[in-house]
Design a protein around this nucleic acid. Structure first.
Lengths: 245, 245
DNA sequence: AGGCCGCTTTGACGTGTATCAAACGCAGGC
DNA sequence: GCCTGCGTTTGATACACGTCAAAGCGGCCT
C-alpha cells in the first residue's frame, strides 16, 4: 500500500545528491562527501512536471528553489497587455526559482518545455544548512552570481547585437551547455519553438526562422525543424565578433 | 602624523553601518542593533572614486563587494569589437560587485558617474559573518535575488518594448528610486549621458534625445539637459501599458 | 571673461526587422 | 492511411529606429 497523501506530481522518492550524476554541475560542486551527505537530507522530494505545465507562476509564494534533474524549462515574465518576455531556458543541472528570494514570491513563470523532473530544495532549510556548511554556502552564492552574469550577457545580446548575432550567440551557448553535460556540442534538438526563441532574443519568430535559413544557406549549420547541426563553429563565433557592418 | 601608507583613494575612517542613514536600503535591512554592530566590524574602509574612475574592471580579481554611500555608478560589459552594453546604473544604498562571486573575477566594469564613495565589504568576511548572523545571510540573499529580478525587468525592456516605452520605464524607475531615498520623485538630475542611457536601453543617443523631446512636447515631462521634471506620472505609466500600436 | 570641447538637439534619409499573408510539412488522432 | 492543426518557412511590404550630418548649448578650463 502506497502513501495516499503524496500529491500526484511529487514522488515519494527522496532525491540523493550523492547518487546523482549532476554532481559536477549542480549545488554539490566543490563539496566533499560528508557535506553532500548533509545536502541529501535537505533536498526533499522530486517533482515531475509535464510538458506545458508550470513549475511555479509569478506571484506564487516562494518556498523552495529547484534543481532540474531531467528536462527543460523556460522562464518568462508577462506584461499587463499580454506581451511575453522569455528570460531564460534552463536545462539539466540548472537552478530555478532564485527570483523568489527577493520578495518571498516568484516574479516569473517557469514552464516545462518537455516532461521534466526537478529536485525540490526547501529554501529555509537551504539557508539553515548553508550556515553550517561553508562549501554549500559558497556554491549557492556562486550559482546566484552566475545567474546575474548570465543575465548581463542576455542584456548584451538584446541591447547591442543584430538578429543574426543574437541567434549565433544563442546557438553557441546551447552548444556549450550540451557539451558540458556530455552531449554533442554539434548536434542537438531544440526544445523550444521559434516563437519562444524569438521572445528570448527580442525578435519575431519570422526573423528567427529567416536567420536559421540564412545560416543554413551559408553552410554554418544544418536545420531540420528542431534538429540542429553545427557545421562551422568558428564561422558562428566570427559572426558575433564582427559588428553587423 | 597620519598614516602615510593609506592609499589616497581609501580613507582610514571605518564605515559604521550603525551610524549610516542608509540602514533602510542597504545590507542592514532587517537586522537588529546587535547584528548591525557585528556588521560594523566587517565593513572595511570607505573608498572614494572620482567621476570617470573605475571602481573595478572586468577581469579584476574579486575580493569585495561594495555598497554605495554617496554617488552614482554605471556597470557595463564590452564586446571585443568595442561595443558597450550598460547593464545598470547604481545609486546610493545599492550594491556593486555581485557579478564577481561566480568566477572570483569581475565580469563587468564599474565606473563612477560622479565623485562617489563606497563601503568596501571584504567578501570572505561577509560569507563568514553571514554564517553566524542569519539576518545578514537572508538580507544578502535578498539583495542578490533582487538583482536577478531587476535584470529580468531590463530584459523585458530590451526585448519587448518600443523606444518610448523603454524611456518611460527608465524614468519611472529612477523616480521610484529617488523617492525611496527621500528625494523628490518628480524632479531630479540625470547623472548619465544620452549615450549611456541609450546603451542601457538598447537605443542610439539620438533616439533617446528624440523620445525626451517628444515626452516634453506631449506635456509628460520637462527636460533641460540633465534636469528632468515629471509632470504627468500617470501618463508615463500609461505609455508602458499600451502596446505601441 | 573668453574660448574650446563634449553633449545634445534636430533634420533628412537608409535599413533591419516587424508585419501581414499564404503555403508548406510534420505529428498526432481517428 | 488520411485528415487536422500547429509550427515553420518564405515572400511582399511597412515602419521604427539607426545613420549621417550640422547646428546649438553649456560647462569647464585657462
Amino acid at each position: 500500500m502506497t502513501k495516499a497523501t503524496v500529491p500526484v506530481s511529487a514522488t515519494a522518492m527522496r532525491a540523493a545528491c550523492s547518487q546523482c550524476n549532476l554532481h559536477e554541475l549542480c549545488l554539490p560542486v566543490g563539496m566533499n562527501a560528508a557535506e553532500i551527505d548533509r545536502l541529501d537530507h535537505l533536498v526533499g522530494a522530486r517533482r515531475k512536471v509535464r510538458k506545458g505545465q508550470h513549475l511555479y507562476r509569478s506571484g506564487d509564494p516562494f518556498e523552495a528553489i529547484y534543481a532540474i534533474r531531467i528536462g527543460w524549462f523556460k522562464t518568462d515574465v508577462l506584461l499587463e497587455d499580454g506581451r511575453e518576455q522569455v528570460t531564460g531556458f534552463q536545462m539539466t543541472g540548472e537552478m530555478l526559482g532564485l527570483d523568489g528570494i527577493s520578495t518571498e514570491a516568484h516574479s516569473c513563470n517557469a514552464v516545462a518545455l518537455e516532461d521534466s523532473e526537478v529536485c525540490v530544495i526547501p529554501y529555509g532549510q537551504l539557508e539553515e544548512l548553508s550556515r553550517e556548511v561553508q562549501g554549500l554556502q559558497h556554491q549557492f552564492h556562486k550559482v546566484m552570481s552566475r545567474e546575474i552574469v548570465r543575465d548581463h550577457g542576455v542584456m548584451m545580446l538584446l541591447g547591442s547585437m543584430r538578429a543574426e548575432e543574437r541567434l549565433a550567440a544563442f546557438l553557441l551557448n546551447l552548444s556549450q551547455r550540451f557539451n558540458a553535460r556530455g552531449f554533442s556540442p554539434a548536434e542537438f534538438h531544440l526544445r523550444m519553438t521559434r516563437d519562444e526563441i524569438g521572445s528570448y532574443l527580442g525578435l519575431k519568430l519570422e526573423t528567427v526562422s529567416r536567420a536559421f535559413s540564412r545560416f543554413q544557406d551559408e553552410g554554418l549549420i544544418s536545420v531540420q525543424q528542431k534538429h540542429i547541426q553545427i557545421i562551422d563553429l568558428a564561422g558562428l563565433r566570427q559572426l558575433i565578433q564582427s559588428p553587423g557592418r
